[in-house]
């Protein structure tokens, strides 16, 4: 069976700054893998390398067996199969929620207007913002915007989804709605790579948790192990700070 994502010895430098220093991760189809770690640990960069929003300095990234780091790879074709959800939502502000979810279906998958609209409405309903189809992003709350962004990615029928701190820009009371949608997706069997600070979500939903620090993977295992019984001091320090910030 081919891996959904296979990352081998991934390095990324920004100038003199070594953000990733040899990462090896594999995600199997249907798995939910959460990446946790302090800010600046390189976890967002790692995620952005998986759909080549960042060009790795060295190493290989394979998505469903296709080496996307090969200069001859058709990156647009690979990206069609990878849904991406951003911290800042990045909805297109000049389009309604419905148009946001339709546009790539029409322009990239060449679906007809009718079909694109049907798929868009189905997916907006699926994430619970069906009644906001006619609203512009500026008229929506952060939680609603993020759910539209998830629907936009889902409408492309991706094989896997990348989430880059999807709840970090949200007001606390809106985080739950977005996490509920992601939980439902995970239950439906979607392959997900999630960079998050939500330890509860990681513990309950993830099949595996990856703890990163300083551009390397410190621990990789089931949540009960990495969050429940961490082996490394760095992991323990991080979790202590996240779970009991006031101690």
């Amino acid at each position: 069976m081919t891996h959904a994502i296979e990352i081998k010895d991934l390095h990324k430098h920004f100038g003199m700054n070594e953000v990733l220093r040899g990462i090896d991760v594999t995600v199997e189809p249907g798995q939910v893998v959460c990446v946790i770690g302090p800010s600046g640990s390189g976890k967002s960069t790692l995620l952005r390398c998986v759909n080549l929003l960042e060009q790795p300095t060295r190493g290989k990234v394979l998505v469903e067996g296709v080496e996307i780091t090969d200069p001859d790879a058709d990156i647009d074709a690979v990206r069609r199969r990878i849904g991406m959800v951003f911290q800042q939502f990045n909805l297109f502000p000049h389009m309604t929620a419905l148009q946001n979810v339709m546009i790539a279906q029409q322009r990239v998958l060449k679906r007809g207007r009718k079909e694109a609209e049907d798929v868009a409405r189905t997916n907006l309903d699926r994430v619970g913002v069906g009644e906001k189809a006619a609203s512009y992003p500026a008229q929506l709350s952060g939680g609603q915007q993020q759910r539209v962004a998830i629907a936009r990615a889902l409408a492309m029928s991706p094989d896997l989804m990348l989430f880059d701190e999807p709840t970090s820009a949200l007001d606390p009371e809106l985080v739950g709605d977005v996490l509920a949608v992601m939980r439902k997706l995970a239950e439906e069997g979607m392959t997900m790579l999630v960079v998050t600070h939500e330890m509860g979500f990681a513990r309950e939903v993830a099949d595996r948790v990856v703890f990163m620090d300083g551009g390397v993977i410190v621990e990789d295992g089931p949540p009960a192990q990495v969050i429940g019984a961490p082996q490394h001091e760095r992991t323990r320090t991080f979790l202590r700070r996240v779970l009991h910030p006031e101690d």
Binding site: N90, F92, A104, M156
Partner: peptide
């Protein structure tokens, strides 16, 4: 914002599109 291009490219659009 740069995020707009990133979102569009992530949906499989070419640079020109």
């Amino acid at each position: 914002p740069k995020g707009q291009t990133e979102a569009a490219r992530s949906l499989g659009m070419s640079a020109g599109r």
